[in-house]
Design a protein around this nucleic acid. Structure first.
Length: 193
DNA sequence: TGTGCGATTACG
DNA sequence: GTAATCGCACAC
């Protein structure tokens, strides 16, 4: 089943596992995701529309990129009906062919998994940053710097459901999903589980 | 205009 | 365990 980005983030997030994210430096298969939505205290959209979250409240299929801790970028796929403030955070990808550009962008990666096994790492490796905030991931007319290749969702038996990582509120909801046993997953266990 | 902090990473 | 580093959200 091909993911339907107009659905809610909690439904779309696990469905995006296996889809391919293409960036300026290379491509990666999505292996770990998290869902965020407007009625969710951990979500940037919780406070409503702000300069930062404008894209999150826009139409589905666009890229929401934000800077975290003053130095790392995180990539999200906006989903749900326009105006609903929902997104899927891409937490890890498995490279689809490692390029020189990806390796150059991740000089600290000593092991191959360190190239893309985290939300900030994958953005650096693929070359995604704030300049790409708001781009249409499904644009077909023109080669976009960042795009999403929707692929059939993973079999439910291959998907592990867990709690989200790195948040200080709404830590109880199981809105993180990853491919079972995939070595590029950032953490196999939710903190505090 | 000022200020505290975060959907992280890397190193000890 | 904790430093790095800055745009943003919200309080004055």
């Amino acid at each position: 089943m091909i993911p339907d980005l107009a659905q809610g983030s909690v439904a779309v997030a696990p469905a995006l596992l296996n889809s391919i994210l293409h960036g300026p430096n290379g491509s990666g298969r999505i292996v770990e995701v998290e869902a965020y939505r407007e009625d969710d205290p951990a979500s940037h959209s919780f406070r409503g529309v702000t300069p930062r979250t404008t894209v999150m409240f826009g139409p589905p299929g666009h890229l929401y990129v934000y800077l975290i801790y003053g130095m790392h970028h995180c990539a999200n796929v906006v989903v749900g009906p326009e105006g609903s403030g929902q997104a899927v955070l891409i937490r890890a990808v498995e490279p689809v062919g490692v390029t020189r550009a990806m390796e150059s962008a991740r000089p600290k990666a000593r092991r191959s998994v360190d190239l893309t096994n985290g939300p900030g790492k994958l953005c650096a490796a693929l070359g995604i940053d704030r300049r790409h905030d708001g781009v249409d991931l499904l644009a077909t007319t023109e080669r976009s710097p960042v795009s999403l290749e929707l692929r059939p969702s993973a079999d439910p038996g291959e998907v592990v459901t867990d709690r989200r990582i790195g948040i200080s509120v709404a830590m109880d909801v199981p809105w993180r999903w990853y491919l079972r046993g995939n070595e590029y997953v950032s953490t196999m266990r939710a903190k505090g589980a």
